[in-house]
């Protein structure tokens, strides 16, 4: 019973650990708990995929509409000598 309780992780804790691991390394026991949980939980599996996809999108954000920068360029040039 003791071991089972050490290994069992709630979904709430599991997804928190998933995101935590992108900021700081997990302890060996946390990594084991997470691996056991992820092996059996579909919902948290979907969360993991989506969280990783969001990470990827955040890292590679390039799209933003084109802007008319004429006025801004003039304003900047006024602030610069020459």
């Amino acid at each position: 019973m003791g071991i089972i309780h050490t290994l069992l992780l709630s979904c709430k804790k599991a997804v928190a650990l998933l995101d935590q691991s992108t900021v700081v390394p997990l302890s060996p026991i946390e990594r084991l708990q997470l691996r056991v949980h992820m092996g059996i939980c579909k919902g948290c599996g979907a969360y993991k995929h989506q969280s990783e996809l969001i990470d990827h999108l955040l890292e590679n954000r390039s799209r933003a509409e084109a802007f008319d920068t004429k006025a801004l360029e003039e304003r900047i040039n006024l602030r610069l000598p020459g």
Binding site: R61, A64, A66
Partner: peptide, 8 residues
């Protein structure tokens, strides 16, 4: 630079 900044 503006495009990068506006996305953020």
């Amino acid at each position: 630079l503006l495009r990068y900044t506006k996305a953020r």
